[in-house]
């Protein structure tokens, strides 16, 4: 397949025909898998999962230098790493179509039936179409699409519209949403920090020290204390550093051990299909 695509130049129509045929074949295979009865599908999924996981496990545990020339990194399985990874990327990209289909389908229904808040759905559809068209044009047509001047204004290119959509639309909206956190943290901390017990008092005291240690205000407030010697510890930035390094980090390590073991255990159960049917039907 790789040879086929490499032998056809990108500009040749046959390249796109081959591309479409490959996508169609992929969809066909997925449809075929979907049509399989459960008793056949289940062992097939288990086998594919096992083989996929086996490659990564074997590649990790087989010592470096096995089956490869001296000086080459990795073992005989390592050169296939990219190819195996590409398979998962390709399979994953099929689902993008599914996601877009689900998203557009739902909002088309809401907009066409004028359900509650249908204006938002319409806005989503317009934004989706505009962003798709102008991103594709920007990628493949550069600045070649010129929109003629209207009512005395100078003409603009597709790239100009893309910049407006990206910087003025997407980037600004994204930043605005992130900025909301600043407001929400105020209301959340105002509501949540109540001194109800000794533990809550300790929590609040350490939170205030760490907060002040992380900003210039803290350094300014205790800036009069010496920077060396026993009193230096009481500068906010040093107390904050102590809490983060000596109290927070060990607790974090302990939680991380637990989480990492959870990931290891779940991975093993999935790889070896020990969780028979947990996601799709009853065990």
């Amino acid at each position: 397949m790789r040879t086929l695509f490499h032998s056809i130049p990108h500009t040749h129509p046959l390249y796109y025909v081959a591309l479409l045929a490959t996508v169609a074949a992929g969809i066909g295979i997925l449809a075929l898998l979907q049509a399989l009865p459960t008793r056949l599908r289940r062992p097939l999924i288990a086998l594919v999962t096992f083989l996929g996981g086996l490659y990564y496990a074997a590649e990790f545990f087989i010592p470096t230098g096995w089956g490869v020339h001296k000086g080459v990194d990795g073992n005989f399985l390592s050169p296939y790493f990219d190819k195996v990874a590409n398979i998962s990327s390709v399979l994953g990209s099929f689902s993008i179509g599914l996601g877009v289909f689900s998203l557009i389908g739902m909002h088309l229904r809401i907009a066409s039936r004028r359900r509650e808040s249908w204006g938002f759905s319409l806005m989503l559809l317009i934004s989706f179409v505009a962003m798709t068209i102008f991103t594709l044009l920007n990628e493949y047509a550069g600045k070649s699409v010129v929109i003629p001047s209207v009512a005395g204004h100078s003409s603009i290119t597709n790239h100009d519209i893309y910049v407006v959509l990206f910087n003025g639309g997407l980037a600004s909206l994204d930043s605005a949403m992130f900025a909301l956190i600043g407001f929400f943290i105020i209301s959340a901390s105002y509501r949540a920090f109540r001194i109800r017990s000794v533990e809550a008092t300790l929590l609040m005291a350490s939170a205030i020290i760490v907060m002040l240690g992380q900003v210039t205000l803290g350094s300014w407030l205790t800036g009069g204390l010496p920077s060396h010697g026993p009193l230096a510890f009481f500068r906010f930035e040093n107390m904050s550093e102590y809490i983060l390094v000596h109290l927070n980090a060990p607790a974090q390590r302990a939680v991380t051990f637990g989480l990492a073991l959870g990931v290891l255990a779940t991975s093993l159960r999935l790889w070896l299909s020990l969780e028979r049917g947990l996601y799709f039907d009853q065990e």
């Binding site: 600043g182 105020i186 105002y190 920090f193 609040m204 205030i208 907060m211 002040l212 210039t216 205000l217």
Partner: peptide, 12 residues
């Protein structure tokens, strides 16, 4: 950032 942190502490 300093001012907002000061506000948080004040509100708490």
């Amino acid at each position: 950032l300093s001012m907002v942190y000061a506000l948080i502490i004040l509100l708490v």
